[in-house]
Design a protein around this nucleic acid. Structure first.
Lengths: 234, 234
DNA sequence: ATTGATTTGTTCGTATGTATC
DNA sequence: GGATACATACGAACAAATCAA
């Protein structure tokens, strides 16, 4: 239930139903006919998505995203939702789609067993016609037995959800600035050795199994990755 | 109370008391003499810090950080704790310490009023003798009335906590790859126009007021920024 | 393969504390 | 000071996934 309430509130914020302040917890309790604990749990989720500031005694305030000329990719939400960048869906150009054996390095990156078989998908992605990213993603075949050609062209995560009810539970992610190889530079229309914003991610099922891991190079102009944290007072 | 429990568990993980699996909730309840709800709230905090995977019916598993040759900066914890990179304290070389008036651009970056007065601190920071970052940080003077020379040389956040009981509550952060100017290149010993990993952050008090914002350029070799997310199923 | 015990997930009710207005 | 609003804490019950006999 709190998932639904959270999703509802998130949508309300994204569609500018709430632009400044949320209703009080009491009002939300009345609105959704659930207990205050459930409302607070839902608000925890919305908060974790980086959409709220909460002020004791005062209320919940919507975080106004920067105003700057930048595209924002919100890291505080799950990775499979990340593909939904504001500004429309990503178009893909598939460069590779095959099955390989994970060597030591790849196995380490994906937290999978060495020599295990994994799907490999390499794609260039475009946002509004502009080159957005180069993405290598991997799917362990012992968890993901089959991927269709079509899903690879469009949305693999949607396919996994619809076909196998397979949805990500948690993700571990690493951002760094990485020097690119000659081949990558060629694809990304940059110079060899250029530093590019790079995101490594591992996606887990609720069972704790890895069903996907990936490395993405972002080249979209003025892209910023956003995240939100709560400090704990010790 | 749950803060204390959370902090205790975090310390236990960081000191390798728990390396694989945490005790069950039931055991933690007995250990800390608090209710299960309180334990779960504490575990939420530890989880949000990116230290745990939780599996229903099974237990809580410690996330083993990549073993890789990289330095990891954990973004999933509050920014003021971020300065505690594994590998010891950061040394600072202060380049500027003065008060300026926020122009439109700076005010936007820091979510403060245009023309408000802010402390400016520009520092080079070193980790284990190696250049780590170039950091420009700002403190609105209407919230932070006074900063000592000494605090600027060492830890401003510690000073604010000790002198004013001022601690961060939430942070909004933006990561991007930024081209650096000639002056910055000079300081960072890079080339002008090089792309550098850059982190913009705004820190809020519990009252919702901005008490600090900053821009940090990271140049430490093989540094990766880590974060952890939980996906919600809709 | 089924069952039963264990373990985490969700939801409710209630009470009290603390900051803001 | 009083009312409002968010924060913390306890107890209880049932659901759902895992695990072991």
């Amino acid at each position: 239930m709190y998932h639904k309430v959270a999703e509802d509130i998130i949508q309300a914020i994204l569609t500018n139903k709430y632009t400044d302040k949320l209703p009080t917890e009491k009002e939300l309790v009345a609105q959704y006919h659930v207990s205050r604990n459930t409302i607070r749990k839902a608000l925890d989720v919305v908060f974790a998505h980086g959409l709220l500031r909460r002020v004791r005694g005062s209320g919940y305030y919507v975080i106004k995203k920067p105003l700057q000329s930048q595209k924002i990719l919100n890291l505080s939400i799950g990775f499979d939702e990340n593909s939904m960048v504001s500004g429309g869906p990503l178009r893909s150009k598939v460069l590779k789609f095959d099955t390989i054996t994970a060597d030591k390095d790849l196995a380490l990156r994906g937290n999978v067993a060495v020599n295990s078989r994994v799907y490999r998908v390499v794609r260039l992605r475009y946002l509004q016609g502009q080159l957005y990213s180069l993405e290598e993603s991997y799917f362990p075949r012992n968890v993901v037995p089959f991927l269709t050609e079509e899903s690879v062209q469009t949305s693999i995560f949607s396919f996994l959800r619809d076909a196998y009810q397979m949805t990500g539970s948690t993700s571990e992610n690493y951002v760094h600035a990485s020097k690119i190889s000659e081949q990558q530079a060629d694809l990304l229309k940059r110079q060899q050795g250029d530093q590019i914003l790079c995101l490594d991610g591992i996606n887990y099922l609720a069972s704790g199994k890895v069903f996907n891991f990936s490395r993405t190079y972002f080249v979209y102009d003025n892209l910023a990755l956003y995240y939100h944290t709560q400090n704990i007072d010790i």
